[in-house]
Design a protein around this nucleic acid. Sequence first.
DNA 1: CCCCGATCCTAGCACCGCTAGACATTCGAG
DNA 2: CTCGAATGTCTAGCGGTGCTAGGATCGGGG
Lengths: 192, 192
Amino acid sequence: MSVQERKERERADRERLIVATARELAERQGWDAVTTRRLAERIEYSQPVLYSHFRGKREIVGAVALQGAAELAAELRTAAGGADGPRARAAALARAYLDFAERNPAVYDALFRLDGGLAFAEEETPQPLKDAFAALLESLGEVAGDGVHPGLFTEVFWAALHGLATLTRAGRLPPGDVGRRVDLLVDRLAVP
Amino acid sequence: MSVQERKERERADRERLIVATARELAERQGWDAVTTRRLAERIEYSQPVLYSHFRGKREIVGAVALQGAAELAAELRTAAGGADGPRARAAALARAYLDFAERNPAVYDALFRLDGGLAFAEEETPQPLKDAFAALLESLGEVAGDGVHPGLFTEVFWAALHGLATLTRAGRLPPGDVGRRVDLLVDRLAVP
DNA sequence: CCCCGATCCTAGCACCGCTAGACATTCGAG
DNA sequence: CTCGAATGTCTAGCGGTGCTAGGATCGGGG
């Protein structure tokens, strides 16, 4: 059954190509530029091929989001691992998070702004998403403070980071001063 | 010149009708359902009439956003005015903000998630937007703490509220617990 | 070797934001 | 009162979107 295996392998390759192409196009020109026609042209197949891999455009967004979640989790853990002490870890985590959002705006949008058809904060939430949240929780739980539920604290801290990331990039907050904002945030939210 | 006055009045009325209809439609069925065709049909005019009032759809979103900004500012001031003490004011403000976002999701999106073609955090920022931020600043400046720039503090606090509002509504945070999250946020961020 | 099923593409649907140009209506000058 | 101009509105259409039905083509198994 080597023939069938080869076909499956080629199919998997093509699926990866679709996701990578969508991601690159989104990162270069924004998600609005990611149309099924353009995407099909880039991978050198016709449109219907996309629909043999994904139900529709939203699922492609979701695939990019999952890929991004894994990377985000890894970067967060790396940043946290290189810092000494709970507060320093929280600060490093915050900076790494905002850095990721700035360097990968399209992936960040796929994760947290667009609808990729993924379940969040539920039983069926895909593993990479759970893991990214877990990466936050690992470091932030240490600075939640006594009597404060670590999960709740992480949610609030995360929301603050998300707000900073989105408002800054949407031009709602003046650029610059990012460092001072995150310093203030960590200084106040994290328990000494 | 009474005739001309009447025409101008009717024109202004129609413009208000467009904005109100767009807002209602967006609030009922989401901004995706607000198409120029549907909007034109609802106001019982043809599509090109919309373009004699607004440059395009984005400007209609912007008009809804400005309307919403004025309402948000008013609600924030009302909430803050009914609380005693700086911390209580900050807490009331936070609750009012999240309440507004929950009760007017489409307006909130027009303000802070969609592109309405409005300038933010700049010289040319429309007055209602500046005023809404000022309403935040009035109450939050009191709890910024010594040596902390009130504007910077307000930006961070606002970002946290925005994060909570958007992540909750997008299903990224489990519903419920909103009260506990905002309690934690105010408790930590606001200086005693 | 030939047939048949899997695979892929062409062509098209209904909808989108937006606009050119025809049409009607109203206004103001003579 | 008449008639041309200006104003206002609509019909029709352009190029784009996500998505899909149905026919052509290709390659492996009998």
